[in-house]
Simulated assay, not measured.
Amino acid sequence: MDFTKKLLITAMASTMLVGCTVPGSHLDIDGKNVVKVSEEQKNNISEQVNVYPLTASTVSTLKAPRVTSKENPALDAEVARYQYHIGPGDILNVTIWDHPELTIPAGSYRSSTEAGNWVHSDGTIFYPYIGLVNVEGKTVTEVRDEMATRLKKFIESPQVDVNVAAFRSQKAYITGEVNAPGQQPVTNVPMTILDAVNKAGGLAEDADWRNVTLTRNGVEDSLSLYALMQRGDLTQNRLLRPGDIIHIPRNDAQKVFVMGEVNNPQLIKIDRAGMSLTEALSTVGGINELEADATGIFVIRGNKSQSTKSQTLANIYQLNIKDASALVIGTEFELQPYDIVYVTAAPISRWNRVVRQLLPTITGFNELTEGALRIRNWP
């Protein structure tokens, strides 16, 4: 077979391959409204991206400040002067010493809650001789002093004691990823966020303890239970007030994407202790030693704040592990939610892929050539 015939066969094989239907889905944009993008918009992405090589000297400057143990004197002072203020629904227990008929008029076998004085919706209680007493918003000390003053008209030197038998008027709420979410009564014992979490059975397995919110009077305050419970940063603690809502979200947003030339590309979640770049690579089975470019391990971190046009679109951090000891640097680089870890392919790997795509055509050409030669040499 001469060269012209071989060329013709090659052309026919190429035409046949082009005309073949490729299996799989396809989205055709013909007939659809395609938004035009200028060449400047296409090409200016490189101007909005910063690349930072990760080295032993630079990785320390990129680390977030370490959370350390801190005192909270403001909270200590607030707890020291804390007093409970009575509200509607509470039950008060009033004792008049040497006057048992006033103390438990319904009998000595009833509990304090059953025999106590219910604070009505108008904030008052009724007591013999003195009638209605306005107790809403007052402390037990203030109520005791007022009742003692008013009883002097009927009892000589009355000795009055007042305490709250049941706390029902004021509540705080803890929601989200705790083992027993729900309402918790505000009592005469000051309750902090840490107390509330412990009373709720502690954190659930999927809790995101770094991004806790405290909502008070419609205003949200972001807190970190990681800093409080793991690092002893007491400035993250708060004294709870009636109506406060503590919400501990799920860790669904604590995820990173590992893609490219790794052994098992996947989405992985950052655990409670955090996750370094080296840990992420280990979780996906490491890089593909045969096809990965060890100099091309990148962490792509989008810029979440886009308030001005001058801000960068993303920051890219490059780790070169051609020397495997550089993985130590990766252990010092903490990943953040929605980071993309991308491992590029080595140039030889890209060439091998091109060859693999051409192999069916080359094989088909060889078979056609061999067949034509057999036909030509057929006796």
Score class of each variant (00 low, 15 high):
5 K>A: 15
8 L>W: 11
11 A>I: 04
14 S>Y: 14
16 M>H: 07
25 S>M: 13
31 G>K: 03
42 K>W: 15
44 N>Y: 11
44 N>S: 14
47 E>P: 10
52 Y>E: 15
54 L>V: 01
59 V>M: 01
77 A>W: 06
77 A>I: 08
78 E>N: 12
80 A>L: 08
83 Q>F: 12
84 Y>G: 08
92 L>P: 05
95 T>G: 02
99 H>I: 06
110 R>Q: 15
113 T>I: 12
114 E>C: 01
117 N>Y: 15
126 F>N: 15
128 P>R: 04
130 I>Q: 08
130 I>P: 05
145 D>H: 13
146 E>Q: 14
151 L>Y: 03
151 L>S: 03
151 L>A: 03
157 S>F: 11
158 P>C: 09
164 V>L: 05
164 V>Q: 02
164 V>I: 07
165 A>C: 04
167 F>S: 01
174 I>K: 02
177 E>T: 04
177 E>G: 05
184 Q>T: 14
185 P>V: 08
190 P>I: 08
191 M>H: 03
193 I>S: 12
194 L>S: 15
195 D>S: 03
196 A>K: 04
200 A>Y: 06
208 D>S: 07
209 W>M: 11
211 N>T: 07
211 N>R: 09
214 L>G: 07
216 R>Y: 13
217 N>W: 10
217 N>P: 02
217 N>F: 06
218 G>T: 03
221 D>T: 05
227 A>C: 04
230 Q>D: 11
234 L>T: 03
234 L>K: 10
237 N>K: 02
239 L>A: 11
240 L>T: 03
243 G>I: 11
247 H>C: 12
250 R>N: 12
257 F>H: 09
258 V>E: 02
260 G>V: 00
261 E>K: 10
265 P>I: 00
265 P>V: 00
266 Q>T: 02
271 D>L: 04
271 D>S: 05
272 R>G: 05
276 S>C: 04
278 T>P: 05
285 G>C: 02
287 I>H: 07
287 I>F: 07
291 E>M: 08
295 T>V: 09
296 G>S: 09
301 R>C: 03
303 N>Q: 07
308 T>H: 15
308 T>C: 13
315 N>S: 13
318 Q>T: 14
319 L>E: 04
327 L>W: 14
330 G>V: 01
331 T>P: 06
331 T>Q: 15
336 Q>H: 07
336 Q>Y: 01
336 Q>R: 09
339 D>S: 01
344 T>F: 14
346 A>E: 09
348 I>V: 15
354 V>R: 11
354 V>T: 12
354 V>Q: 10
356 R>S: 14
358 L>S: 07
358 L>Y: 10
360 P>S: 01
361 T>F: 05
362 I>C: 01
362 I>V: 14
365 F>A: 13
365 F>P: 00
366 N>S: 14
368 L>Y: 04
372 A>T: 06
373 L>P: 09
374 R>T: 06
374 R>M: 10
